[in-house]
Amino acid sequence: MTRLIVVRLLFGALTLWAVSLVVFAATQALPGDAAQLILGRDATPERLEALRDQLNLHEPVAVQYMQWLQGILQGDLGNSFSNGLPVAEYLRSSVQSSLALMGLAALVATPVSLFIGAFSALRRDRSFDHASSMGTLVVASIPEFVVGILLILALGPGGLGLFPSVYAREGGPEQWILPVLTLALAVAPPIVRMMRATMIEVLESEYVQQARLKGVSERTVLWRHAAPNAIGPVAQVIALQLAWLAGGVVAIEFLFNFPGVGKDLMDAIENRDVPLIQAVVLLIAGIYILVNLIADVIGLAANPKVRVANR
């Protein structure tokens, strides 16, 4: 199994490298060059030339890419164009906030969806099952920022007035609730549906029937016999959903004015702050790859055939 994980890791690194190529190529395709972007339209040709020398813009593109990549590998993401701060320093606090937001959303969404999915499977074709499948379908078909707006209207100051709708630096922890809830609702439906489908399949299997015929209690049947066999396929969907969070967080942060990477990305795009854009996109891609890698490892670990074969 170690070998399989190493192979997966290598593929992850390869994907990340491919992403870096695309990101670099995309910034190259922008009109004008970095010096023009930094200095603006009114810059004199002399100052532009001087800055181009400073930024090594006269080197061939391949060399520029190698220098950029080398910098990244050493943890140097370059300096922000707009305020001159090192990108890493500039992003630190917002990355922490965003990761906390995503982590909270994942912590809320995953167990609740798994539970609802499993319970729907047990109560197949009964009222709980119908309600949950209807609910997930409705939530899944509404875009997440609309979900967010609806939540604000219902629970925010205009509605029940339970939680603030906009993040403020001096606010308390209650202002986290609506963004977390919105993200959780956005990722939950596919997990619920997959868990339900997988559990139904597993509960109908002969080994579950055999466990019941042995006189094993219903709880043991569910958690010892059924759940481990459902984990593999469901983990894949959970990973896809949590990875989606990395990108989905952008719109939600904008909606709630939450100071995270999403908002930074919006600002960076507005200011044409290329190093910042590059860093944020790489970060989002990195999270995507990491989460999928973890899901692969869980899927492999849940399968005794793989686990035992490579000892």
Binding site: S205, E206, Y207, V208, Q209, Q210, A211, R224, H225, P228, N229, A302, N303, P304, K305
Partner: peptide
């Protein structure tokens, strides 16, 4: 083959 739980 299908009545023994593959994960146990």
């Amino acid at each position: 083959a299908s009545a023994l739980n593959p994960a146990l």
